[in-house]
Amino acid sequence: MSNSGDDVGPPKRVTDFHSISKASVGQILGLVEAVDEAGGTADVATISSEVDMDIDRLGPILAAAEFLGLLEVEDGDVRMTDLSRKLLSASVRERKSIVRGIIDDLPVFRRVTEMARVAGRPLDRREIVDALAASVGSHQAEEVFKALVYWGRYVELVRYDSESELLSLRTPSK
């Protein structure tokens, strides 16, 4: 979808990728479920009190869900999207493949998987962090890398061994 030549974006997108490093799959799905239970749309304050989490903790999760296209936030109102409706009615397996579609389209993720594909060998953590540091700064590179491994593993596109610190690609099991 998005093309990486589009130059307004890279730093901003990378920062966004950084934003999903602050939330786990379970939290994002839990939030979507909560919005669904509240009738598919609700204001943030209501959700916050419903799920008993203050805005400080809810914020990053909300941002991540928005970034993944699962929720829309406008004027303090949270709304479900078609994608999240589809996600909720899906099984554990199908949820994965839906999220895979989203993650696989993120430029940063693309860049790293492309790196691995071109190299034709497992990549060292160091190599990837260095490459990321070039675009996001060394400060965020580690976090982005962590998020990359987390989401990459979840959608079964990435295999990472924390012992050898080697990252390689994998084909999802259906």
């Binding site: 799905l29 479920e33 909560a34």
Partner: peptide, 9 residues
């Protein structure tokens, strides 16, 4: 677990 993760699980 935090409330969201718990509900999801």
């Amino acid at each position: 677990l935090d409330p969201l993760t718990a509900q999801n699980l």
